[in-house]
Design a protein around this nucleic acid. Structure first.
Length: 424
DNA sequence: TCTGGGGTCCTAGGACCC
DNA sequence: TCTGGGGTCCTAGGACCC
């Protein structure tokens, strides 16, 4: 059993913690540059405001109903999030912090999950001032589904349990398929072509058929709806694969200098994140593009990807590489609307350094091949899908071992590598 | 005039190899 | 001259999540 605890209108609730006068008044929180509405209190939703609506389109409605409007304050939200998560962590040793406002708890073995959930809800609200909704189910997907009812059904009192021994068909039949975790608007539309309009209809679908017509991810969702755990609890966040920092400009930008300044700011911030996670990067990717909302204007998506001479977390090195990338992608005569930096091929600095010496020189050598292949087979089996490193005789002869390096970061790799060296 | 930011996973298809 | 089957690697793009 899993519980999903979700903070109600999290950013709005955070603002309300310090502004009790806003209780029961509609509240909206805006994105960067006050571009669009990214959080709405229930009262704001009732006015017909929608998540993601551009502020300039909503402004008239907002003014007319005296909606309280805030620019986003991520430090505040991060701080309150940590407090909420700490409180939640007291109720189960197995906790997955899924996002800034959601977490899963392992509810296995609780004899009265509903009472437990209500206790959690009361405690969080009393200790942090943030209201939450709780859904409980046999899988994470079912817990998510239950959460929708906890949130939207006033009868529920903010808690909904789907017991594993009761067929959830009646409940799931009331959940539009679009609201299932893992089903976005595109798949919802395509599923509709097959008359799969509700969570229940999706649960009744054949996973193999779904896998062939859609993909493996959606098939997994079907299995989860059927009560089979396919998405385990992740107690530790997996290591980051990329770090992105990007912003829209308040005004269109044309000059290289302005672009350079923005990219410098972004790469500095990205380097801070990198060091904060104890990682180093091997690749810098830079991008800048024009405003897609003005299709009549000339459009340009500039990107540049550069490998670093050696793994680094040093701001200056990253910045010089980012600037080189920017020079490469910059085209005169465009109005740039957004720019950003991505750091890729991340890993622990030491491991990455060692990898520079770890490129195995086994290509083209036929002696000991048989034994080598046996070992590789074993290793690959253990490492699982997508990691058939070194196994083929074909493949690129040129050394671009990015893929290799990614696998090498896993702790399992270390053992694998030792074995390989023994054979060699 | 004004339309967010930060992530992950999967798949199709081309280049390349034997 | 015929033009296969099996495989890897990479990229782009599509889908999803918050």
């Amino acid at each position: 059993m899993f519980a999903l605890i979700d903070c109600n209108s999290f950013y709005c609730s955070c603002e309300r913690v310090f502004r009790p006068d806003l209780e029961s008044r509609p509240v909206v929180v805006l994105s960067n540059n006050d571009g669009c509405c990214i959080a709405l209190s229930p009262e704001a939703k009732a006015l017909g405001l929608k998540m993601g609506t551009p502020y300039f389109q909503a402004r008239e409605l907002i003014n007319r109903h005296k909606v309280a409007v805030f620019s986003s304050n991520y430090e505040l939200y991060g701080d309150l999030s940590r407090r909420v998560m700490t409180v939640l962590g007291r109720f189960s040793p197995r906790q997955e912090i899924y996002s800034i406002d959601e977490c899963f708890l392992d509810f296995s073995g609780f004899h009265d999950p509903e009472a437990r959930a209500r206790e959690i809800k009361r405690t969080v609200e009393r200790w942090t001032g943030i209201p939450v909704s709780i859904g409980v189910g046999a899988t994470k997907t079912l817990a998510k589904a239950a959460n929708r009812f906890a949130k939207n059904d006033p009868q529920s009192g903010g808690v909904k349990v789907l017991p594993p021994d009761v067929d959830p068909g009646d409940t799931l039949a009331r959940l539009p398929v679009r609201e299932v975790w893992g089903v976005g608007h595109r798949w919802a539309r395509r599923l509709g072509d097959y008359r799969i309009d509700t969570a229940e209809a999706l649960r009744r679908a054949d996973p193999a058929w779904i896998a062939s017509v859609f993909n493996a991810t959606l098939a997994r969702t079907v299995r989860e709806l059927q009560g089979h755990t396919c998405i385990p609890l992740e107690l530790q966040p997996p290591p980051k694969q990329q770090i992105v920092v990007s912003r829209s400009f308040g005004r269109p930008v044309t000059a290289f200098e302005d672009l350079r300044e923005a990219v410098f700011t972004h790469v500095t911030r990205a380097a801070e994140k990198l060091r904060g996670d104890g990682l180093a990067a091997q690749v810098v990717h830079v991008f800048a593009h024009t405003n897609a909302f003005q299709p009549e204007a000339p459009q340009y998506h500039g990107t540049a990807t550069l490998a670093l001479p050696r793994p680094t977390q040093d701001t200056r090195r990253l910045a010089s590489q980012a600037e080189a990338g920017l020079r490469r992608l910059y085209r005169n005569g465009f109005c740039y609307k957004k720019a950003g930096v991505m750091l890729l091929e991340l890993g622990s600095p030491n491991v990455l350094q060692n990898e520079l010496f770890a490129t195995p020189e086994t290509d083209g050598e036929t002696f000991r091949t048989r034994r080598l292949m046996e070992v590789l087979d074993n290793i690959n089996r253990r490492l699982g899908r997508g990691t058939m490193f070194l196994a083929g005789q074909g493949g690129h002869q040129s050394p671009r071992p990015w893929r290799l390096r990614r696998e090498m970061r896993s702790p399992r790799y270390t053992t694998a590598w030792k074995e390989l060296r023994q054979v060699n």
